[in-house]
Design a protein around this nucleic acid. Structure first.
Lengths: 179, 179
DNA sequence: AACTTTATTAAAAATTTATTTAACACTTTT
DNA sequence: AAAAGTGTTAAATAAATTTTTAATAAAGTT
């Protein structure tokens, strides 16, 4: 192998290493992280190529690639004349970012909002209940208000998701600032 | 225990459950997630209170609380006249959000930017190297451009962090929309 | 329709991570 | 200065997750 090829591979590996390392933020396994980072420098890959490249089993590649598809970091590609499935890494990090965080934040907001609504109803019942002691009522009021306050955050999170999905956020924060 | 108290606890537990459940997004252990969610309804707690409340060991509480401190979701509080350390949950989710994501994104941007800069230098060397074959040069150019493109994203991430840190983002996305 | 090839599922093994028990170190109090 | 209380570190255990081997299913080819 030539010196240039070696240097090329070395350079790629530097980037592959750090991409994989920072991907813990996306809650994927090391295998999936390595896979994504490897695919980042490939046009597309089959499961067998992945296995060869990473020296891991095929089912491991299969599950990793599926997880990466779930968080939209890998897409299935169609290759005519090939029976093997081919996959390509999403190389546009903006799209990965949007898909991942929107999905996560939406889930966080939705789940918590629902629980909060239910809990607040309970607190109101307790407050209205004549059998509740003044202390209990006071406590219920405190919690009710605390939850009411937190709803501001979840609504904001939903707004953030919406502004990312619609692309409106890039009017405020341009992808390539003019100056 | 009165019916109201029971209902109160039940309502709290609903919220505690979902907060803990959605906290996987923050990469904390279930123990830490449960702890935070529990503390969310308490003014402040000592390690022993945590242990009693969650039925877990003290070292587990100690490490969980430390991890939560690292991501700024729990703060140490001073309680005069008590030898025990006391801790309080950050109840303002905006602050948690800001601290957590800014820290994470900054790390992601910094690490990848550094690796990219280094790799790009290598690619330039390869391109300039007279011993490189045309194919190798073409490949190096492709990768160089791909990395250059990705820098747009990391710069944007840094801008996002900055606008969150400075609070400027709330001019664009208000915490409490007027309408 | 049988045979290949490929991908996925299931069960087992291995690794990693989380948690606990036990020991240690540090503070404060007496 | 000794003793008690509190928190942290270390080693061991337990639990969960990841990965692999093996088996099955699905799709395509001859």
């Amino acid at each position: 192998m030539s010196e240039s090829t070696e240097r090329l591979e070395e350079a790629k590996d530097k980037v592959i290493g750090t991409i994989a390392e920072t991907m813990d933020l996306y809650g994927v396994t090391p295998a999936a992280a390595n896979l994504y980072a490897t695919m980042y420098f490939k046009d597309q890959m089959t499961l067998d190529e992945m296995r060869t490249e990473l020296g891991m089993s095929k089912p491991s590649m299969s599950t990793s690639v599926r997880r990466l598809q779930e968080i939209k970091m890998v897409k299935k590609t169609f290759t005519r004349g090939s029976r093997k499935h081919t996959y390509a890494a999403e190389k546009n990090f903006f799209r990965s970012f949007m898909a991942f965080y929107c999905q996560m934040w939406e889930r966080e907001a939705k789940m918590n909002m629902e629980a909060i609504e239910e809990a607040q109803e309970d607190f109101i019942e307790v407050i209205k209940d004549s059998k509740s002691t003044p202390e209990i009522v006071a406590e219920a009021k405190t919690y009710y208000d605390q939850l009411e306050e937190s709803k501001t955050y979840y609504r904001w999170l939903e707004d953030l998701v919406e502004s990312i999905r619609s692309g409106k956020i890039f009017e405020f924060l341009p992808k390539d600032p003019k100056n």
